[in-house]
């Protein structure tokens, strides 16, 4: 199977969907001739030009709401925020218009808009360029939230996102962009709400969010040498969230650790833990544990990088603690 980077795979999916449906167009800063700050649209401008790859000024609220209107009137916009942190400028209209127009129009208006951007902590990106923010969207009725971790998943999920008639947050962790992985040939889509078991195990279940799946897998590899068998689950989409896979795993192992580099309060770990409590209480052999990023705006200086977000070592330590519970 051919190997592509995360960015290449996603771009391939985008290219296929743009070719398939002429109503799909992309809007964002530098996504035109420049091909995107992260090469998200590299090569497409040559094919489709200004009509479908529209550079914008630095005005997220403006162009996001503009695309909301475009989506409501029959086209299929993709808003490429580059850094998802910039999307926060458009929160107001996103939450009040984009999320609600379908309901408020009694279904007459559709909202086939994809809101994509990079998330997550990486060295020296600083407080304005390291955000995750997915709990905000998971919390609002109407949004789909997608966090792929492999190139194959990126392509399949982006295609589904583009064909979806609801607003989709397509969140790509910066640390994954250049990771290579196998991508199947041919047309395929990955439905929302389907987690994968990235690694099978017996003793403990670890749910990783976005890039944390990779770190959890590294921790699992380390612990396998100590005789500890870790099951790692990649939810792939946070809304809808595949709780059945997580619950089946907890039923097997009895212990759950959720690793999320985003902040702890009201985060995905809290949500998952609560749902496990609601539906799988009698399967728990120990309290559900979570490991989150430090509850501070991401510092710029590299000196603060260690310990800012979970890594394989801290995940392994947390798993050992959880097994002793």
């Amino acid at each position: 199977m051919r190997e592509l980077t995360f960015v290449e795979a996603a771009r391939e999916g985008l290219a296929e969907e743009m070719a398939r449906d002429g109503r799909v167009f992309v809007v964002g800063e530098g996504i035109g001739a420049r091909g995107g700050n992260f090469n998200t649209t590299l090569g497409l401008y040559e094919l489709y030009g200004e009509e479908r790859l529209r550079d914008t000024p630095i005005s997220e609220r403006g162009f996001t709401t503009l695309c909301t209107g475009a989506a409501a009137t029959g086209s299929r916009p993709i808003v490429d925020f580059m850094f998802i942190d910039f999307l926060t400028d458009a929160f107001g209209d996103l939450f009040n218009q984009t999320a609600k127009l379908q309901w408020m129009s009694n279904g007459r208006l559709k909202m086939p808009i994809v809101l994509r951007g990079c998330i997550g902590v990486a060295p020296q990106f600083g407080a304005h360029h390291s955000g995750n923010y997915y709990p905000f969207f998971v919390h609002i009725p109407g949004f789909r939230v997608v966090v792929p971790t492999t190139p194959a998943d990126a392509k399949g999920l982006l295609k589904t996102a583009i064909r979806c008639d609801d607003p989709v947050l397509f969140l790509e962790h910066k640390a994954l962009l250049n990771l290579k992985g196998p991508v199947p040939d041919g047309e395929y889509l990955i439905p929302f709400g389907q987690a994968t078991v990235a690694r099978q195990g017996q003793h403990v279940t670890v749910v990783g969010i976005a890039y944390m799946v990779k770190e959890a897998l590294r921790a699992a590899e380390q612990l396998a040498a100590e005789g500890i068998s870790v099951e790692v689950i990649d939810p792939r989409t946070l809304a809808p969230l595949d709780m059945d896979t997580i619950l089946a795993s907890v039923h097997k192992t009895g212990r759950l650790l959720i690793v999320d580099e985003d902040y702890a309060p009201c985060g995905m770990a809290a949500e998952i833990a609560m749902q496990v409590m609601e539906r799988g209480f009698d399967d728990l052999d120990a309290p559900v544990q979570r490991l989150n990023g430090a509850f501070i705006p991401a510092p710029y200086s590299d000196a603060f990088a260690p310990g800012l977000v979970p890594d394989a070592a801290s995940i392994a330590a947390a798993i050992r603690q959880l097994l002793a519970e």
Partner: peptide, 30 residues
């Protein structure tokens, strides 16, 4: 006692009230 251990105890007919737990807080686990 953890919920899971309680469930397993009732499945296997084990009287758990007299067990010594190996969980960190002295909790009886599976």
């Amino acid at each position: 006692i953890s919920p899971r251990a309680r469930r397993v105890a009732s499945e296997l007919g084990v009287e758990w009230r007299w067990l010594k737990g190996s969980g960190r807080s002295g909790r009886i686990v599976e």
